[in-house]
Design a protein around this nucleic acid. Structure first.
Length: 534
RNA sequence: GGGCCCGUAGCUCAGCGGCAGAGCAGGGGACUUUUAAUCCUCGUGUCGUGGGUUCGAAUCCCACCGGGCCCUCCA
């Protein structure tokens, strides 16, 4: 399977306009970032293939507010059903409207992931400027065709009087509660009905009004098709919620062909991200809170997670108590190494170079230089970060063989933060280590007589008060040799005595980080088989 | 009721008409000082089930079973 985005880029000819849009309702969860990443990767692939490409992202800010939970209690009665662009910002942080505030949150999130559309457009602006007027007029003129399309494609029966338009009520300002029942070529007749929808209550006003210049808005399916014509969109991905048979995208395709007489853009349907085999959900106890993943998985690894599988494959991602996150880092590092021309074990995925390149935050990055950077293994950092008193940067530099450059220091800092966050949240118990300070761990009962003798011997031969890790390490090997104990057995004994497990971090440095008195007591306690507090 | 995705090694997945593969985990080994590092080594698994097409099927077609999701108001 060749890389899906490069395949798409090889299939098209001429300049391309890639588009998507989103309602700024206030919810941005990790799963909803797959679409934007796919869009961005398509644009990068098109440009890499030499196509002139425009990346547009729309804010559907004239859509009605329909999520009660996202409003402050006093705003519910007043604002439900109003265009998002007309609702005051709930947070007092200087945005002109609810829509602007929440659009900012996803624009910021996109930027964080290296997604940079050439232009964001606001539908409220285009309606106000009259750009949508020709499309509104045509939709009204062909209302019968639209109703027929709804019947045929979506099995939705609108009454004969229904027209495809939502008027912003002149009396109460709501758009979600109005229905247009007449069109005379210049004005529409509309009613703001109290019971049109369950989630908002119309005021009962009715009248004739011009639908142009921002006073009305097309329903979503028509608006979508109108956007394609207005902007000349050639490629537009869509999530499975819209891509389902008879769903929003099928209706928009039919409307584009039969009402606006334009072939719809190329579809790229994509599946969602499932966490633990379940739909992304922040409210259910099962699964994983979405926003936490963003805090733990840095941008480039998150991009990799989304762009690696073909879009029509659902992504299963279960970071809780698993090694899913360390593996994501490992895979990224492996792709980097391979892209740098280093030999890696095993097979590489087809198009691995593209996968790495498109995972990078900066589209203009020097891929060779990025690939060649030294990246400490995530799981190794997750270990080091748990040992007190370790100079991690020095350790990592030693691993690299030379000091870190500025970019590598930044990578290290990012990974350390990620490792700490991971250990606090998703890491399985086996990844966490803790010195058992209270008492000799019960697991130490498994120590052999030879191992106990080794511990007792070491207690007598501890290095000086200010001994560093190396001195301790030397003492360990000396004590092991003195008792005829293989080094591996000696280390196992220490880990059991201090950590209650058979493996651990470099023992010399671990012991050096603890108080000398405690170490001696513990060595003696474990050697004697005592399990009372040391 | 309609639609989509998945079912291949313990886990995550690649392969999508030509001898079943990788990573991770796991087993074994090496290493008198990086001991959760590094290096070497180990893979027969009803490719979900049953049919069909084919010289040849994990791969294409049909049916079925299992897991998950989406839509059937609006966006």
């Amino acid at each position: 399977m060749a890389e899906w985005a490069d395949e798409l880029a090889a299939r098209v000819t001429g300049p391309q306009v890639v588009n998507d849009s989103k309602t700024p309702s206030g919810t941005v969860h990790v799963g909803s970032l797959r679409g934007p990443v796919i869009l961005d990767v398509i644009c990068r692939a098109l440009r890499a293939a030499g196509h002139e490409t425009t990346f547009l992202y729309g804010v559907d800010d004239l859509d009605p507010m329909d999520a009660q939970a996202l409003l402050t209690p006093d705003a519910v009665e007043r604002s439900m059903g109003m265009p998002l662009a007309h609702i005051p910002d709930q947070a007092d942080d200087g945005h002109a409207s609810y829509a602007r505030h929440h659009a900012q949150t996803f624009i910021d999130t996109f930027a964080h992931l290296g997604i940079q559309p050439d232009r964001y457009y606001w539908m409220s602006d285009h309606y106000a400027a009259g750009d949508m007027d020709p499309y509104i007029r045509r939709a009204l003129d062909r209302a019968a065709t639209v109703r027929e399309i709804y019947r045929r494609v979506a099995n939705v029966n609108h009454p004969e009087a229904w027209h495809p338009l939502g008027v912003i009520c002149e009396s109460c300002g709501r758009i979600g509660t109005t229905i247009v029942t007449g069109w005379d070529g210049e004005r529409v007749h509309y009613e703001c009905r109290p019971d049109l929808v369950t989630w908002a209550r119309g005021c009962g006003h009715a009248g004739w009004v011009s639908p142009f210049g921002g006073r009305a808005k097309l329903p979503w399916n028509l608006e979508w098709a109108a956007q394609w014509s207005l902007f000349g969109v050639t490629i537009e991905p869509c999530g499975k919620d819209l891509a389902t048979a008879g769903g929003s995208r099928d209706r928009a395709d039919a409307i584009s062909r039969e009402v606006y007489e334009r072939e719809p853009p190329i579809r790229v349907d994509y599946e969602f991200l499932n966490v633990g085999g379940r739909k992304m959900s922040t409210s259910k106890g099962h699964g994983t809170p979405a926003h936490k993943i963003v805090e733990i998985v840095p941008s480039e690894q998150l991009r990799l997670l989304f762009l690696r599988p073909r879009p029509n494959h659902a992504i299963e991602f279960d970071p809780d108590g698993s090694d899913a996150i360390p593996r994501l880092f490992d895979e990224f590092d492996r792709l980097a190494a391979a892209s740098a021309g280093k030999s890696v074990r095993g097979e590489l995925p087809p198009g691995y170079r593209s996968i790495f390149r498109y995972s990078l935050l900066d589209p203009a990055a020097d891929v060779e230089a990025e690939a060649a950077r030294f990246r400490p293994a995530f799981s190794h950092l997750a270990l080091l970060v748990q040992i007190p008193g370790v100079d991690i940067e020095a350790h990592v530099a030693a691993e690299k063989g030379s000091s870190l450059d500025v970019a590598e220091e930044a990578i290290l800092a990012e990974r350390l933060a990620a490792a700490r966050a991971w250990l606090e949240t998703y890491a399985p118990a086996t990844a966490r280590m803790e010195v058992r300070r209270d008492a000799v761990p019960p697991e130490a009962a498994a120590l052999t007589a030879t191992q106990r003798a080794f511990l007792a011997h070491l207690a007598e031969e501890v290095p000086g008060a200010d001994a560093a890790g190396e001195a301790w390490q030397a003492a360990i090997f000396a004590a092991a040799a003195a008792g005829g104990l293989p080094a591996g057995e000696a280390f196992r004994a220490l880990y059991l005595a201090f950590l209650g497990r058979s493996s651990g971090p470099r023992a010399g440095w671990l012991l050096a980080s603890l108080e000398r008195g405690f170490v001696v007591e513990r060595l003696r306690g474990a050697a004697s088989g005592a399990t009372i507090p040391a």
